[in-house]
Design a protein around this nucleic acid. Structure first.
Lengths: 334, 334
DNA sequence: CTGAAAGCGCTTACAG
DNA sequence: CTGAAAGCGCTTACAG
C-alpha cells in the first residue's frame, strides 16, 4: 500500500507538503504542488482515513442504531440519514438492535469504540434508561430518532397526537362509536403516544375508551389473539385503527378471514401503513410519516451538535399526513 | 478520554500487560489481571478501535453499497448483511448509490479510505466495468450482491431463469398467449436475466416474443408510457409479468385505472412483489426472493474471502419461491 | 510471568 | 514557501 512517505520521496518533498496539498491546509508553490499531484497519481495513493482520524480525533463518521430494520419506515429513515451524511462527506455505520436491548447495548459499545463523531439511536422497545447514561457526559453527541423520551438530548420524531385525533373525529363524525385501537407494544414511545392520543380523542368525543376495544400487546401472537377476541365480541367494533404496519397487516388478515367488507362492515385506518396503500382494494386510509425526512433531520441535528456541543437541545416533531381513502368511507372535504 | 496509559499506571503495570489482558493474547498472572480489570472498570476505559486497527492493519469492518436503499428487497439484504456481520463482531459501513454511478464511485473511495476489510457491492444500473478495476489486484476483497456479472469475484444473487420459466408455463398452460413482460431497465443484470428468460420460455412454448408485448425502459415515465401503450393495443395482453416491485406497482395502477379485473380480464404476476401481497384483492402471485439470505450469504462469502484471499471464487444463486395466488387464476397442484 | 520500545500513517505546531 | 519532528493510542516482536 502506498503511503505519504512514498509520495513524498517521488515528488522530492516532505510529507508535510504532501499532507498540505492533500488537505489544502496551507499554500504550496504551484510547481511543487504539481509534482505532488503527479506523484499521487502515479502511485495511486489513497489517504488512510484511520491514521487521519487518529491524529485529528475525528472520524467523520456517525453511527445509527435502528430498532427494527425490517419496518419500511425505518428503511426510509436509514436512507434519510445516509444521504444527508454522505452529502457532508460523513460515513454511516449502521447497526440493527432488532428490538433487543442487549444487541442495542453491544452496538452502542462497538460504535463508540470506533470513535464515531456522534450517534443516532432509535431505541429498542425494552431499552431502559441506563442505555443513555453513557451519553450524559456529552463526550459523544446523541440524537434520539423516532422513539423519543424525556431525556435531555436532541430528538426528532413525528407528531402523533394530531393525526390520531383527526382520525377519531373523522370516524366518530360518521357515527362510529365502537372503534378498535390496535396499539401494540406501548413500551415503544410512538405507540404509547398514539394510544394516549386515542384515549384523549375518544374521551373528548364523549365515548369513554374501553379495554375491550384496545389491544396492547408486546408480541405478534398476543396482538393476533387480542384482535380476534375484539372482532368476535358480542358488540364488535365498526371501525379499526392500527398503530403500525405490522399491526395493520395483522388486523387486515383477521378482517379478510372473517369476510368483513371495508368500509361497509368495518372501517379501517392505519398509522404508518403500506408502501402501496393505494393498490389495496379498497384503498386504505393511511397516516403517512415523513420517514426519510425524520432520518435526514436526525443527521442534521447530529452534525449541528457535533459542530457546537453547547447549543440548546432541540426536539423536532414532523407532521405526518393523513391520506383518506375508501377504507374509511367518504373522504372528508379538506 | 481514558487511554491504556492511565489504566496501566493505575494498575501499576505496563501497557503491554493491559493490552494482553484486554485481548487475551498472552497469559497474565491472576492477581495482576485482577488489578488491570479493576483499573479498566474504575476509569471506564474503552478500547480505541482506530488505533487498534491501524496497528493490526485490520478494521473488523466491512462496507456495503446498495443501488437502491428504497427497494424493500434491498432493505432486507441490508438486514442480512448487518446481522451476519454483527454476529462476528464486524461493523457495517453503509452507503447508497441510488443508482448513480458517480455516487457509487465516491462511496467506493470513501469506504476504501476507511480501510474496510472488504466490500459488498450491489452495482448501480449504469455502472461500468471501470468501477471494478480497483479490486482486480485483490487488495480489498469484493463480493458482488444481487446484480451479478462476468467478473472474477465472489457473487451472490437469485436464480432468475427457473421462476420466469415456471411462471410462463403456468400462464401458457392456461391458454395465455399474449403475455406482457414489464422488464424495466435491462442494464440491470437481474432484469436483463429475467427478460432473457422470458424470451426463452416463450420461444420454448412456441410463442415468438413480440416487441409490442415487452416494455424495457430505464425511467419510470417511460415504463408507464410503455405499459399504457401495451394495454391499449388492439390486441391487448391477457396476462402481465412485472419484473420488480416498482414495475409491478406501475402496472397495477394502469390495470386498476382501466377497471380491468384480475384474473378474469388480465392475469398478473410480479417478481419480487409486495411485502404484503396476500392482503391485496385479489391476492397477488409473487416470486419471492430470499433477500435476507442473499445479504447473509454475501457477508459470509466476504468474511471467508477475507480469511483466505486465495480461495476459489464462488458464485451462489439462491432459489426464489413462487407464491401462486388468485391473480393468476387457479393455483397449480404442487 | 512481564516490560521497554518500535512503529502503524497521518496532522500540525514550530522553525526557518 | 517548506521541512523536521512530535505524537494520536494502540499491538507485538524482542528480551529477560
Amino acid at each position: 500500500m502506498t503511503t505519504m512517505v512514498k509520495v513524498a520521496q517521488l515528488a522530492g518533498v516532505s510529507i508535510s507538503t504532501v499532507s498540505h496539498v492533500l488537505n489544502g491546509t496551507r499554500h504550496v508553490g504551484d510547481e511543487t504542488r504539481q509534482r505532488v499531484l503527479k506523484a499521487i497519481e502515479e502511485t495511486s495513493y489513497r489517504q488512510d482515513a484511520l491514521a487521519r482520524a487518529m491524529r485529528r480525533s475525528r472520524t467523520d463518521s456517525i453511527g445509527l442504531i435502528v430498532s427494527d430494520g425490517g419496518e419500511p419506515a425505518f428503511a426510509e429513515m436509514i436512507r434519510g440519514v445516509e444521504e444527508t451524511a454522505a452529502n457532508q462527506g460523513i460515513t454511516l455505520l449502521l447497526a440493527n438492535s432488532a428490538e433487543d436491548p442487549q444487541r442495542e447495548a453491544r452496538a452502542v459499545q462497538a460504535l463508540l469504540e470506533r470513535r464515531v463523531d456522534g450517534l443516532i439511536l432509535a431505541r429498542a422497545a425494552g431499552s431502559g434508561p441506563e442505555a443513555l447514561a453513557e451519553f450524559a457526559n456529552q463526550d459523544t453527541p446523541l440524537v434520539l430518532m423516532d422513539r423519543l423520551s424525556e431525556d435531555p438530548f436532541d430528538q426528532v420524531g413525528v407528531e402523533n397526537n394530531a393525526p390520531i385525533k383527526e382520525l377519531v373525529e373523522h370516524l366518530t363524525s360518521q357515527g362510529h362509536e365502537r372503534i378498535l385501537l390496535v396499539a401494540g407494544d406501548t413500551r415503544v414511545s410512538t405507540l404509547r403516544e398514539r394510544h394516549r392520543a386515542f384515549q384523549d380523542a375518544m374521551t373528548a368525543a364523549g365515548i369513554p375508551p374501553s379495554d375491550q376495544l384496545t389491544v396492547t400487546a408486546a408480541g405478534q401472537a398476543e396482538s393476533d389473539a387480542g384482535i380476534e377476541e375484539a372482532l368476535s365480541a358480542a358488540a364488535p367494533p365498526t371501525a379499526v385503527i392500527a398503530c403500525s404496519t405490522v399491526l395493520a397487516a395483522a388486523a387486515l388478515r383477521r378482517i379478510q378471514q372473517r369476510g368483513l367488507r371495508m368500509p361497509e362492515d368495518i372501517a379501517f385506518a392505519a398509522f404508518d401503513g403500506f408502501a402501496y396503500a393505494d393498490l389495496f382494494d379498497p384503498q386504505l386510509t393511511t397516516v403517512r410519516q415523513p420517514a426519510f425526512q425524520v432520518g435526514a433531520t436526525a443527521a442534521e441535528l447530529l452534525t449541528r451538535r457535533i459542530a457546537d456541543k453547547s447549543a440548546e437541545t432541540s426536539i423536532v416533531r414532523l407532521a405526518p399526513t393523513i391520506e383518506y381513502r375508501a377504507s374509511t368511507g367518504p373522504t372528508p372535504a379538506s
